[in-house]
Design a protein around this nucleic acid. Structure first.
Lengths: 209, 209
DNA sequence: CATGGAAGAGAACGGCCGTTCTCGGGTTGC
DNA sequence: GCAACCCGAGAACGGCCGTTCTCTTCCATG
């Protein structure tokens, strides 16, 4: 007769579903109480404020997403396979019903300017993602590993965003194709005939600026 | 002594700055009244509800961004130059102080699940962006133009997101480099030695599923 | 069985937000 | 001069939200 799952887990399950589906500010604590079945009094004993619950929601998402991604990568052997496999893993994620974009990007847009804690968690999540990609890129012995890592991050976040707004999973696979092309090209193609005529240095500044 | 700029413009200027910097739901109508100097009564005569003001805010952002982007592209000659030039235009945009990501993505994450109008405007903005890229890609006579168009969109949105969260403009230039590589490769590199072992068709389905 | 404490259900409270109303002052037309 | 009207400033109103309080019920212990 003891509790099947812990109270914290039930609250976080409810908060996760509601916060992700509807946005944080659109969901009141009453709704989380109704969905979890945990009365407000106990809920506030586990999480002393809504802000603390939001942070726990993001931290759990971070841990679960990183675990799932690393598990998928571990099932593949070569660095190149792992890198491309991540985009196929992403394809299954964005195909799930109810997918509505990256929970971290959404939270950052909604709360980042008001909550330093949320900003730190989101930046930490993306930094971990970068470390993960960076390790694979170094293993793949690509030239300009930092540039390629940034490009993979860009493809990853861009695929999530385009898939969410167009409501189709295909962008994840187009991002995989792009990653494959970048791996084949060495991650830093600088074609002579494709410049726009405005030279830009690697740090973004322009000569004479 | 007549008004320097129209009341609608003053209201939209204030709403734009506040909505973008702090999120829509975090900004009350009183704050827009204070920032614009337009009393609530007149404000509600111009925009009959906060929702209408939010939609006008997004529509004006859409018009301005598209105009600025097309103007920049018009200053370049070849399709390839235009495509890469857009990422340099993006680099200047994400370098501006106060840049906090794509207003449309942020609004979609915050309000998309509750407002069909916001969702439609965001999707319309991205669809216009796709048409814009698509025209340039077709002009560039790339093979698989649809795939390359999606990849450019992914790079574009991803660069915005990564630049916002890491608070550095460099991802826009790394996205430009990636776009250059994809243009050089034809937009659909399918390297024999880079597959992850799981075949995936172009539409995202797997054989036998 | 009596009693103390913990805990659930729901009300309550202060505060904010979107929207509307009131009131007072100024302006226009006769 | 006067009346009718418009408009700005701010209060007011209903509703929601985060948080706390109250009251009742339940259970464990002596």
């Amino acid at each position: 007769m003891e509790t099947e799952v812990s109270v914290e887990t039930r609250v976080l399950d409810a908060a996760d579903a509601l916060f992700y589906a509807q946005g944080v500010q659109a969901v009141g604590m009453d709704r989380i109480r109704d969905a979890s079945g945990v009365p407000l009094k106990r809920l506030y004993r586990c999480f002393p404020s809504k802000g603390a619950l939001v942070e726990a929601y993001l931290r759990r998402r971070d841990k679960i997403a990183r675990g799932s991604m690393e598990e998928h990568a571990d099932s593949l052997s070569s660095p190149d396979e792992k890198i491309l496999g991540i985009f196929e893993w992403l394809h299954t994620v964005v195909s799930e019903p109810g997918f509505r974009g990256c929970a971290f990007n959404n939270a950052f847009g909604e709360l980042g300017s008001h909550s330093a804690a949320v900003t730190a968690i989101v930046q930490g999540h993306k930094a971990a993602l970068r470390r993960f990609f960076s390790g694979l890129v170094h293993d793949a012995k690509a030239p300009d590993p930092e540039g390629l890592t940034t490009q993979l991050l860009v493809l990853f976040d861009g695929a999530i965003t385009v898939a969410a707004i167009t409501d189709t999973p295909a962008p994840a696979l187009r991002a995989r194709d792009a990653a494959a092309a970048l791996l084949a090209a060495g991650g830093r193609e600088e074609p002579a005939q494709h410049g726009s005529g405005v030279p830009v240095r690697a740090d973004g500044s322009r000569p004479g600026g």
